[in-house]
């Protein structure tokens, strides 16, 4: 087995509230190799917080604790802001859900990509511009020269998301965290965006953490899936085994989806059990071990 790129053990994210400490993430452990790792769960399950904690984006008074959070053997847990900035963007990047809120509305797209690239890679403006055009082409934007001079409101949602990906990938990060990257997109654009990310994982050997609420999509797109419930990973599966999930929560989620090929009169409704929050995990080993050959 190769060394994992990212190794997380017993991650906790907590927020003090008036009613006491709220634990958004409660002891999450996983290793990431050169693979597509899906993180699935409902809203409030802690999946986005896990992604944000890795990048040091949990704002005070939120607190991040872990036994270990290593990137290529080096600890990145609670690094000071200066150190974190060296990692953010250049080694680990993040694509957020909605391009409308993550692009700067008063700056042209070209200037934003150029700025992001020069911040990490340095170099002259002309070289950065060339790189930006190249990246836009890499994410299948047909008319990159025009898009470079456009403002975010002048492009569609799908294009905005591809631009975000282009911007995040310009510094050639080792790991990309994609937080619901396709939830705001139409299905036909979704396929394109996924293809782009898929190619990047295969061609560049990038590690991808794909956070999503869409179980079926994750099963089809990723290699491995973590299923989160109430801040914990309740089950880890190879993606092709998702339909043999053993945890009742995973099974319940799958069953509650309407299916075109299996019509039912009423949909089965998920009956939540209190013990899902605290029971021992189904298979402790699966949680952290990288599958063979990764």
């Amino acid at each position: 087995m190769t060394e994992p790129m990212l190794s997380v053990r017993n991650l906790h994210v907590s927020f003090p509230t008036r009613q006491g400490v709220f634990e958004a993430v409660r002891g999450v452990s996983f290793d990431l190799g050169r693979e597509r790792l899906g993180v699935v769960g409902e809203s409030g399950s802690g999946k986005s917080m896990t992604g944000r904690a890795i990048l040091g984006l949990v704002r005070p008074p939120g607190q991040v604790r872990a036994d270990r959070m290593d990137l290529g053997g080096q600890s990145i847990l609670n690094l000071p802001e200066r150190g974190m900035r060296k990692i953010r963007g250049s080694r680990i990047s993040m694509v957020m859900q909605d391009p409308k809120f993550s692009l700067n509305p008063v700056m042209t797209i070209g200037d934003q990509i150029i700025e992001a690239y020069r911040l990490h890679a340095g170099g002259g403006k002309a070289a950065a511009r060339k790189k930006a055009l190249e990246m836009l082409k890499a994410v299948q934007i047909r008319d990159p020269e025009r898009v470079m001079d456009a403002y975010p409101h002048e492009v569609s949602g799908g294009m905005g998301q591809r631009i975000m990906i282009a911007m995040m990938l310009a510094p050639d990060p080792e790991i990309l965290i994609a937080d619901e990257p396709t939830s705001a997109l139409d299905v036909s654009v979704r396929t394109e965006v996924l293809n782009i990310m898929d190619r990047l994982v295969r061609d560049r050997g990038m590690g991808l953490i794909f956070i999503s609420h869409d179980l079926n999509l994750v099963a089809q797109f990723c290699d491995r899936v973590l299923i989160m419930y109430a801040g914990r990973v309740v089950e880890t599966l190879a993606a092709q085994d998702l339909h043999n999930a053993r945890h009742p929560y995973t099974q319940g989620l799958l069953n509650s989806l309407p299916r075109l090929d299996a019509p039912v009169d009423r949909l089965p409704v998920l009956q939540r059990q209190e013990n899902w929050r605290s029971d021992p995990l189904i298979d402790q080993g699966l949680e952290t071990e990288l599958p063979k050959g990764v």
């Binding site: 409902e42 609420h213 179980l215 309407p258 949909l267 409704v269």
Partner: peptide, 14 residues
């Protein structure tokens, strides 16, 4: 809505 809640609302509408 989340998929499990979606199932409840769709059942209600049915």
């Amino acid at each position: 809505l989340d998929v499990s809640v979606q199932a409840e609302i769709l059942n209600l509408l049915t």
